[in-house]
Nucleic acid binder design. Structure first.
Lengths: 216, 216
DNA sequence: ACGATTATACGTACAGTGTACGATACATAG
DNA sequence: CTATGTATCGTACACTGTACGTATAATCGT
């Protein structure tokens, strides 16, 4: 049909923002074209004028998140630069947990490319060999994506965890051969606000590369 | 229809093995009931006699992989025990790359539970506090799952990488603002068999916890 | 002012997906 | 020889992405 008269037209940006919002709330599996179109008060096929396929929309969604990652301050030490960058990425993925599921799979766009470049640059300009820079890059991104994956895939929201844990502890046989698991569940139930261990382990990894660098 | 005369009946195991094999070859997205049934010379709905839903089949697939992870030797040091366990998990996920995509999402079965328990046990029996054991557990599984995720999601098979990298280097403008990325691609193209950096970073993480443990 | 062209929108249709329901036909028990 | 349980699957439905064709509004050339 026509571009109806009194209606604001669609745009890539509107669709993208709606898709991100929907995925934030409902997860990436639930994201589907018809539903998205309904939210945008349009027909499903209208979206294909702006994105030639769902895959292209997903590409744009990844780029949207990649754009939220800080680029490192060139005056900082490599440790500070990398640490801030990693935390920034961690936070971005925390805001958009679905992204880790498609991050590496979608085609590499300029923002994600810029992220990779900036990590490699910081390392290479501070004494890392090509091979070491690549290893450090992998180590750091594994940690970022791994953390995001665990946070995203864990099937319980923090709210529900208390109730589920309590129910589990009630139901489980005291003679079950999993004392340390039970102990762990009890501990986590009683300490709802455990600190995010992202930074802790990140520091261990950075320590490792620092030692490696000094060792040459 | 009937249970046809001269035909071996299906079974949970047959279906499970076929599903694992199919996912190994084609990825988990491509796994679908009809195709699987065709491979098993049966009708699609026959599978539902053994698994009440696709989700239950996926649960069983996760358990299948979890069963392949070594349980740690109780006489080893915690470092060795955890290192071996982690490498074993890394290898299992390397054989079945699709599993990291559903590992945490599927309902927790006995084998995955046993894996968690064994990690926590080793740590708790070697001086880790409840909180530290949990942190170490998370750190290690993040590394395992993150590594698996990157390996699985990277869209190019090792074979194709050389060709794709060469084509990329040809096509990219020499003035593109990504010198370190280009350098990295060239390096990886020339060194096809880079060592798996899983163990390297795992050691860094274990060093971190070792230091932490000594520090108390 | 008015016809031609482009930009935007979408109805319909099709080939997949998981799976609910009910109909089989075989094996065995009574 | 029924009758009942076990194993199998044909059909149908709701939902997915999207190819194709078409309809109108906006814009431009004259």
């Amino acid at each position: 049909m026509p571009r109806t008269k009194g209606k604001e037209p669609l745009s890539q940006e509107k669709i993208l923002l709606a898709a991100v919002k929907y995925a934030d709330q409902n997860g990436i599996d639930k994201l589907n074209i018809r539903q998205l179109a309904t939210l945008l008060n349009s027909g499903a096929m209208s979206l294909y004028y702006y994105f030639s396929s769902k895959g292209e929309l997903l590409d744009a969604m990844v780029e949207f998140v990649a754009a939220q990652i800080e680029t490192p301050d060139p005056n900082a030490t490599w440790r500070d630069g990398i640490a801030r960058l990693a935390m920034s990425a961690h936070e971005a993925m925390g805001r958009h947990p679905w992204v880790c599921r498609i991050w590496s799979k979608q085609t590499l766009g300029p923002n994600r490319l810029a992220f990779m470049e900036s990590v490699l640059r910081v390392l290479r300009q501070n004494g890392f060999s090509i091979a070491d820079a690549y290893e450090a890059y992998c180590a750091i991104t594994v940690h970022i994506e791994g953390s995001a994956l665990q946070a995203a895939e864990f099937p319980l929201k923090p709210k529900d965890y208390q109730r589920a844990a309590a129910a589990f502890l009630e139901s489980v046989d005291a003679s079950a051969p999993i004392p340390y698991f039970i102990e762990n569940v009890r501990y986590r139930m009683e300490h709802a606000d455990l600190p995010d261990q992202f930074t802790l382990v990140l520091d261990m990894i950075l320590n490792g590369f620092e030692a490696r660098l000094a060792h040459k």
